[in-house]
Measured scan of single mutants.
Amino acid sequence: LRLEVKLGQGCFGEVWMGTWNGTTRVAIKTLKPGTMSPEAFLQEAQVMKKLRHEKLVQLYAVVSEEPIYIVTEYMSKGSLLDFLKGETGKYLRLPQLVDMAAQIASGMAYVERMNYVHRDLRAANILVGENLVCKVADFGLARLIEDNEYTARQGAKFPIKWTAPEAALYGRFTIKSDVWSFGILLTELTTKGRVPYPGMVNREVLDQVERGYRMPCPPECPESLHDLMCQCWRKEPEERPTFEYLQAFL
């Protein structure tokens, strides 16, 4: 395994491009020591290896001592969030954005069929390849993070704006909380990567959403798509659509 080009840095580690087995181009995620327990990670990795779908980033291998390494397929255009905010983002029109959403829903419909939960679905965790191919990455890892700023769910590192209220408040993460996050991801797509709930801080978002506030229809977004977002944001988790439905609708 060779680490060649550093692609990015996040709160919990770095991402590199490299070569595996001398020939395969891969992405390598390294986790800061202390982010998660190697034992817990190894268990999760076994499950992650079983998830194989064309719209999920394929896991190739893991190094399960500290520092933990995760070796996955390489996606040339990086994260969907950076892609939307970058040069190419300007030229993306609604049909392409909807197609990308459908690809993500397709990957998540598979996660749904496998009775698995992602827990951290957002544009930053979707990767883009050639020809606007989108794949879901980092599934299941969020559960293992041991950082206090994260586990408190009120901490600075927790993605509260993407998280369903029952998950943020009571830790009830299910495929239905993933559906909520998918609704937020749809706003990221239609606004080219704007942060959700602009002008609001995490605490406010939690309070307002509890009181029934939902983001309005983004500019140039059809009402039918906003309606779909609002279905994803129904207060009762069981009233939210399935990913199978979302995939078919898109």
Rank of each mutant, 00 (worst) to 15 (best):
L7D: 13
G8A: 04
G8N: 04
Q9K: 05
G10M: 01
V15S: 03
M17K: 10
T19E: 13
W20S: 10
G22S: 11
T23W: 15
T24G: 15
R25Q: 09
I28L: 10
T35D: 07
T35S: 11
T35V: 04
M36P: 03
S37R: 06
F41L: 03
Q43V: 05
E44N: 02
E44V: 00
Q46G: 12
K49C: 04
K49H: 03
R52H: 13
R52S: 15
E54D: 10
E54P: 13
Y60A: 12
A61L: 02
A61Q: 09
V62P: 00
V63Y: 09
E65C: 15
E66L: 15
V71S: 04
V71W: 02
S76Y: 12
K77V: 10
G78D: 06
F83C: 11
L84K: 02
L84A: 10
G86R: 11
E87I: 14
E87M: 14
E87D: 09
T88C: 12
L92Y: 11
L94F: 07
P95D: 05
P95G: 09
A101G: 10
Q103K: 15
Q103S: 10
A105C: 14
S106C: 14
Y110N: 05
Y110Q: 07
V111L: 04
E112S: 15
N115I: 06
N115L: 11
D120R: 03
D120A: 00
A124I: 05
I126W: 03
E130P: 14
V133T: 11
V133C: 09
K135I: 10
V136G: 02
A137Y: 01
D138F: 00
F139M: 04
G140N: 02
A142M: 04
R143P: 00
L144H: 11
T151M: 12
A152F: 03
A152I: 04
A152Y: 03
R153C: 09
G155V: 03
P159L: 00
I160F: 12
W162P: 01
A164T: 03
A164E: 08
E166V: 00
Y170I: 09
Y170W: 11
G171Y: 14
G171V: 04
G171I: 04
F173H: 04
I175C: 15
I175E: 15
S177R: 01
W180K: 02
I184K: 01
L185G: 04
E188P: 00
T190R: 00
P198D: 05
P198N: 05
P198Q: 07
P198T: 06
G199T: 11
M200F: 08
N202S: 04
N202E: 01
Q208T: 11
V209A: 10
R211H: 11
R211K: 09
P216I: 08
P218W: 06
E220G: 10
W233S: 08
W233L: 05
W233I: 01
R234D: 14
R234H: 13
E236S: 12
P237Y: 14
E238S: 12
R240I: 02
P241Q: 08
L246D: 03
Q247M: 03
F249G: 06
